[in-house]
Computed example of a mutant assay.
Amino acid sequence: MASVTLSDLRKEYGDLTAVDGLSLDVDDGELLCLLGPSGCGKSTTLRMLGGLETPTDGDVHIGGEPVTDQPPYERNTSMVFQSWALFPHKSVLENVAFGLKMDGVGSEEREERAREMLDVVEMESFADHDPTDLSGGQKQRVALARSLAIEPDVLLLDEPLSNLDKRLREQMQLELRNIHDAVETTFVHVTHDQNEAFTLADSIAIMNDGEIEQVGAPREVYDDPVSLFIEEFLGDTNLVDATVASVTDDGVVADTAFDADIDVRTGDAAVSEGDALTISFRPEELDVSPASAADGGAAVASEPATALTGDITDVLYRGSSVRFYVDIAGESLFFEQSVGADTGFEVGDTVEVSWNPSDLLAFAGDGERVGRGGE
C-alpha cells in the first residue's frame, strides 16, 4: 500500500486544458473514486498518476516519493482498463501470471501467486480455462487478478465495469469492494456512475471541467454539496429560480417562481436583497398529502411558505418507484414514492407538498452554495 499526492497537476493538449491545477491526497489503503461527467479530465488524471501521460505542470508522489518523471514500469502501480485485454491464446492462469513473468519471477512462485489472486477474485476453478469462454464479469475478475498479482502499491481502475450490463455491474461493484478490503491495497477508481462511486468509495473526489470541486465521504458530498454542479450531478432534484426578498437571522426569505416566499435556512448568508438564487428541493425531502382543489397553487398555512398546493400533471412509472409531477403556479416540481406505498395519486389530483426549511439548499448566481454548513 501507499499514499498518493497530486500537486497542482496540469495537462494541456495544444489549446485544450484537460486538467487544470488539480491537487488531491489519497490515504494509504483508501479506495477513492474520481467521479465526474465524460470529458471532465478524470481518466487523464489517472493516466498521469500511472505514468501513461506526462503532466504539463505539477507533481505526483506515491508513498511520499516523487515519481512525476518516472516511466510507468518504474512505478509500482497497475492499471485495469475498460477493455479486459486478455490474451486469447493463454489460459486464465497464464494471463494472471503474465506480469509476474515480465518481472522475472520464477515459474513456481508466479503460479502460486497467480492462483492466490484467482482465489481472491473467486476464479481459481477457471485457472485452466480459455479466456474466450468466460463471461464479461469473469473476464473482468481475471483482469483484476492480473493487476493485483504484481502486488502494486496503488491499483488504478479506469471505468473497468462500464462494459458490463446493469445486473452484473452492480454485482461486480460489491465484489470489488470486498476485494479491496481483502487485499488492503490503495485503489483509485475512475467512474462517471454516481451509484458505483457511492457503493465503492471510502471517499469521492468530484471533478468538473478539469478541476476537483469537492472531496469527501459519499454521504458528505451528497448531503452537503459545495456547488450547484454537485447538487445537480448527484441524484435528482427540483431546481427553482428565486430572488432574495429579505435576509433573516438564520437564512433568507426568497421570492420564488411558485409566486410564494420560501424560508431557506442558510445561516449567516453573504447575500443581499435582490440577489438571484437557485433553490434545490430534493424529492426525498418532500412530504405529500391530498389537498382541497380550491387551494391549488396557493401557499398553505404560513408565510413564508413551508407548503404549497398544486395539481398532478404526469405520473411516470419507474419500476420500483413512481414519479409524480406537480404544477404549482406554472412551475413543475416532482416527488417520488415507492410502488408499494400505493398512495392512489393520479393525474388531476390536487396535493399539498410540504418541507422543512432546513432541508432546502440555496445556490448563488455563480453556482456556489449559500451559507454552506450554516456559517
Score class of each variant (00 low, 15 high):
265 R>Q: 12
304 P>Q: 07
276 A>G: 01
338 S>F: 13
111 E>H: 07
37 P>A: 12
89 H>M: 00
168 L>E: 02
22 L>I: 06
161 L>C: 10
252 V>I: 15
97 A>T: 01
286 L>Y: 04
127 A>K: 08
92 V>M: 01
335 F>R: 08
363 F>S: 02
135 S>H: 15
247 V>C: 09
369 R>A: 15
238 N>V: 11
244 V>S: 13
363 F>D: 05
147 S>H: 06
296 G>I: 07
230 I>Y: 11
183 V>R: 07
7 S>P: 00
234 L>M: 12
35 L>P: 05
238 N>I: 15
239 L>M: 14
283 P>E: 06
213 E>D: 15
130 D>V: 14
278 T>G: 00
347 V>K: 14
109 E>L: 03
84 W>R: 04
214 Q>W: 14
297 G>H: 07
90 K>I: 00
125 S>A: 10
161 L>R: 09
332 S>K: 04
137 G>L: 15
260 A>L: 14
224 D>S: 05
217 A>S: 05
49 L>C: 13
76 N>Q: 14
87 F>N: 02
33 C>Y: 06
156 L>Y: 05
230 I>G: 08
360 L>E: 03
156 L>H: 04
366 D>H: 09
191 T>Q: 09
362 A>Y: 05
250 D>G: 09
82 Q>A: 13
344 G>A: 10
54 T>E: 04
170 E>Q: 06
51 G>N: 02
62 I>W: 05
268 D>G: 04
47 R>E: 10
373 G>F: 09
198 F>A: 01
56 T>M: 02
84 W>T: 06
144 L>G: 10
338 S>N: 11
239 L>E: 10
361 L>P: 00
257 A>Y: 08
304 P>A: 06
45 T>H: 15
98 F>R: 02
52 L>R: 03
54 T>G: 00
355 W>L: 12
222 Y>W: 01
341 A>Q: 14
293 A>P: 05
39 G>M: 14
315 V>I: 02
153 D>M: 06
216 G>Y: 09
135 S>W: 15
159 E>L: 10
48 M>D: 09
126 F>K: 06
2 A>S: 12
286 L>Q: 02
273 E>C: 00
75 R>W: 15
53 E>P: 00
296 G>S: 11
183 V>D: 06
134 L>W: 15
195 N>W: 01
256 T>K: 11
309 T>Y: 00
275 D>W: 00
279 I>C: 00
38 S>V: 13
249 D>P: 08
372 R>I: 14
67 V>C: 12
38 S>Y: 14
59 D>C: 00
22 L>R: 08
26 V>R: 14
93 L>R: 02
215 V>N: 08
212 I>A: 15
353 V>M: 15
344 G>S: 08
161 L>W: 11
337 Q>Y: 05
255 D>F: 14
296 G>K: 09
56 T>A: 02
216 G>S: 08
347 V>W: 12
3 S>M: 02
197 A>Q: 04
150 I>Q: 05
317 Y>A: 06
258 F>I: 12
214 Q>P: 12
97 A>H: 01
184 E>W: 11
140 Q>Y: 11
297 G>W: 04
363 F>V: 07
105 V>Q: 03
358 S>Y: 03
25 D>G: 11
217 A>G: 03
250 D>T: 13
361 L>C: 01
202 D>R: 03
126 F>T: 02
